[in-house]
């Protein structure tokens, strides 16, 4: 009950935080997609580069989020605030996006590629008409992981000056305000789960029909 009262009393603040949270997540995701999907596709053409890039992505992914945010802050061009947060989030997204695009494209049945090549399809045409469509389930899985993860990590950006839902938790912790913590945690969890389910729904519609018929 007290949570509802808290939400009612602070609707405006929560809405502002939620908006900021969304804006940060959305921007990070868009930049990540524009950046990492092409990288994932490109490295399918060269094994050596693939292992290098994937290694870098893996290593970045290991870095604790608070650490990465903290390091970003020390870079003068970034400083406290949105720019640091964005860079860190985009760096985290590298691993699930690049890896899944790479694995998705590489995982396409070799015989399908062989047959397409044998019919005279150019390698870009094969990529565009066969490999990418067939990789959609795997790519989408990576996309979902990215969205959920970014939503969660974005909350931590509150410690480097972002005014988002993470702030409810942070302030709740310093003020020992349980309602604030729970409402903050709840909202972030709801956004993450909501986005995940939404993407799950979109995934079902976007996956090529021939890949689904077997299951229906």
């Amino acid at each position: 009950m007290e949570y509802i009262i808290y939400i009612q009393r602070n609707t405006e603040l929560i809405m502002e935080y939620a908006q900021n949270h969304f804006a940060l997540v959305l921007t990070a995701i868009i930049i990540s997609l524009v950046l990492w999907v092409p990288v994932g596709v490109l490295i399918t053409k060269n094994e050596k580069w693939a292992s290098r890039v994937l290694n870098i992505a893996n290593t970045i992914f290991c870095i604790p989020s608070l650490s990465l945010f903290a390091v970003m802050v020390t870079i003068p061009a970034l400083g406290l605030g949105r720019r640091s947060a964005l860079v860190a989030l985009v760096l985290y997204a590298m691993m699930p996006l690049v890896r899944n695009v790479y694995q998705g494209v590489k995982g396409v049945d070799k015989s399908v590629i062989e047959a397409a090549k044998g019919m005279g399809m150019s390698s870009w045409r094969i990529l565009w008409e066969i490999q990418l469509p067939l990789a959609t389930p795997v790519i989408f899985a990576g996309f979902r992981i990215t969205v959920v993860m970014t939503t969660g990590i974005a909350a931590i950006a509150t410690y480097i000056g972002e005014r988002n839902l993470g702030r409810l938790i942070a302030e709740g912790l310093t003020r020992f305000n349980v309602e604030m913590i729970i409402v903050g945690a709840l909202f972030i969890a709801i956004i993450a789960i909501g986005l995940d389910s939404l993407l799950g729904y979109i995934e079902k519609r976007i996956v090529p029909r021939g890949l689904r018929t077997g299951r229906s």
Binding site: T151, A155, I169, G172, L173, G184, A185, L186, A189, A192
Partner: peptide, 17 residues
């Protein structure tokens, strides 16, 4: 799978109360 989507900060914060 659902629990996995709960962010780390929320997990830490929720145990405090």
């Amino acid at each position: 799978n659902l629990l996995q989507t709960v962010p780390g900060l929320a997990v830490i914060a929720l145990v405090m109360p």
